[in-house]
Design a protein around this nucleic acid. Structure first.
Lengths: 343, 343
DNA sequence: CACCCACATGTAAGCGCTTACATTACCAAG
DNA sequence: CTTGGTAATGTAAGCGCTTACATGTGGGTG
């Protein structure tokens, strides 16, 4: 076999463990041992090998190692997209933790794909485990992956049979936030956002309903709009045109809240006087607008880290947990709710 | 060799091309051909194979393919971090284009690493080529990678010998923006941000200087602060304390501009009356604050896509371009500069 | 001084794919 | 009925690593 490896070490991508071994006058096993640093190698030999590596500019071929050790040493992460701070922060948390665990991260963004199923299948091919954001439209494929025995964890999604879930708390914080609005005397509070766009939004609406029930009030039906800036603007315009009557808007996320608030203000409405507006996520903009946006901060970074963690443990053979892990969130009161807070 | 592959197909991760072949009653070559879809296979055989794949839940082992075809079919991307829309957008552009080119993307965030050099070396092990953001502190290693013959492109950095560069235009737009400020009659304009934090910032300052020279004015020394929110706040406070006198602030990016503007306004200063503030990047917040922030929009998404593109072509054997490719930027005039624009 | 044991290193068998080349089956032409 | 060509499939040689096992080398012991 060795014959093939005696090709010129100068060739593009040419240095292999064979050329390094030859150059250092040792066997490939020794080179591998030096590079992995797991078995002891005598210091002189070590130095010879390191010198040869340096000299030849040797870069190991990860695929060969993966094949031999039967691990990719990589985690996959499937996210819808990265606009807005939420997913970006999640990714940062995931990447940081994965780095600590010596795992590479392979990223797939679903919004840029035409054939999502193929993309996920392809991803499964090169990672040991996959974290999928809950609202990504791929449940069927996740199941297929499962069958094919790759550990999967769902972030902010519903735990399924054999699929772990990690998420941030939604229901109680939403109940608290909605209660806060009601305690400001608001009686025509509307929930803006589609509860069906994911289990997290679903729970936020559930919290909104619960807060009403707590006070013996009736909760209105949600205004089902997508969680995007443009949709917020459109909704606000419909509201200005008289389509909705409300003295408070509990928006499913900050993006929605901010665009609605801006549109309302531009039309001369007083926020929070005429109508209070609150959001969810605590994006950077939330503290720059006037009035400051009351919202809920999620431990997004930690959520990403947790996902990476769980993936790693599943890969290490730990059994999946049947219950979802939930991280606590935090109500951030500024003044768009009607409070006279500092900001 | 085949002996080893006859292990139970039920085993975790167990299905291999061997078990599929056996199950379908064909050779592994045929399975491979069906899966790659490159050579013709008779329809009945094809169906048998596909059925076996489905039945066994076969997921190919990417590493084995990579080893055989001698390509990782993956691009690496090295970014500082992802807070703020800039890097996130860049990443989205990169990922989208990479997806079109059927390349996976492996992400490395430098801010989360303690040993960057190791991280990059490790990355080189599993991708065909690497795009590095210019300000990432790794020039020495990039060079080493080069020696090891992995194509590298630098994003928003200086082109080096054998390393391609792609970036957005900075100098001319900065000259235009600074000129705009001066044409508003501002005569004590300060550049806030450290020109040494990267070639792009360097060029923005150069444009600022050029605009002054164009009008026969003297440009002030830059106020060297890092491009982060906290630094902006700190600077604004020093300014309020009288450490600086200025009627216009040209900030190196929006994050800086926004935090400065907010701090100044909270202290009762009129923007742009007392002092005009402009930024760079056109982040989402820029259009929500009042006055709307005048800034410069970069084609960040396209920049990411371009990097992915170039990487792919370099991998395909195209020779590196010696000149950097530069994408045009666009001045976005709102009202923080002194204009009475709509927003 | 023979013997046993660490210790350092080498040998070689895979890991699961792709693909060049060989083989087979079948049919048309001579 | 041979011959040659083509289409479909099989055979087997790698791809570059890791690692179990084998081998060699020097001391301590008894």
């Amino acid at each position: 076999m060795a014959k093939q490896h005696q090709a010129s070490p100068e060739a593009r991508q040419g240095a292999t463990i064979y050329s390094v071994a030859e150059h250092a006058g040792v066997s490939i096993a020794t080179v591998s041992r030096v590079l992995q640093g797991v078995t002891v190698v005598s210091e002189p030999t070590r130095q010879k090998v390191l010198a040869a590596v340096e000299e030849l500019g040797y870069v190991a071929l990860g695929a060969a190692r993966s094949l031999a050790v039967r691990h990719h040493e990589a985690h996959g992460l499937v996210l819808p997209e990265l606009s807005g701070p939420y997913y970006a922060e999640l990714l940062m948390g995931f990447e940081a933790r994965a780095a600590e665990l010596a795992q590479s991260v392979v990223l797939v963004l679903t919004d840029s794909r035409t054939d999502l199923a193929a993309a996920v299948r392809q991803l499964a091919t090169r990672v040991d485990a996959i974290a999928v954001f809950g609202s990504a439209p791929i449940s069927a494929d996740v199941v297929r992956l499962l069958r094919a025995k790759k550990p999967v964890v769902v972030i902010a999604g519903e735990p399924q049979d054999g699929v772990e879930a990690v998420s941030a708390e939604n229901l109680e914080s939403a109940r608290e936030l909605a209660g806060h609005l009601l305690d400001h005397g608001k009686r025509r509070a509307l929930f803006v956002g589609d509860p069906d766009s994911g289990p997290d939004i679903h729970n936020r609406y559930a919290g909104y309903v619960a807060a009403h029930r707590d006070r013996g009030l009736d909760a209105a039906e949600p205004v089902r709009v997508a969680l995007r800036e443009a949709e917020g603007t459109a909704f606000a315009q419909r509201m200005l045109a008289g389509a909705y009557e409300a003295d408070a808007l509990m928006c499913a996320n900050d993006e929605l809240a901010l665009s609605i608030m801006a549109t309302l203000q531009d039309a001369g409405r007083d926020v929070p006087g005429d109508v209070a507006v609150v959001g969810w996520d605590d994006v950077m903009t939330a503290r720059y607008v006037r009035p400051g946006l009351t919202t809920v901060r999620q431990p997004v970074h930690e959520l990403g880290a947790l996902a990476a963690d769980r993936l790693h443990e599943l890969v290490s053979g730990e059994p999946p947990r049947s219950r979802a892990q939930t991280l606590p969130t935090q109500l951030v009161v500024r003044s768009s709710c009607g409070c006279r807070a500092a900001t």
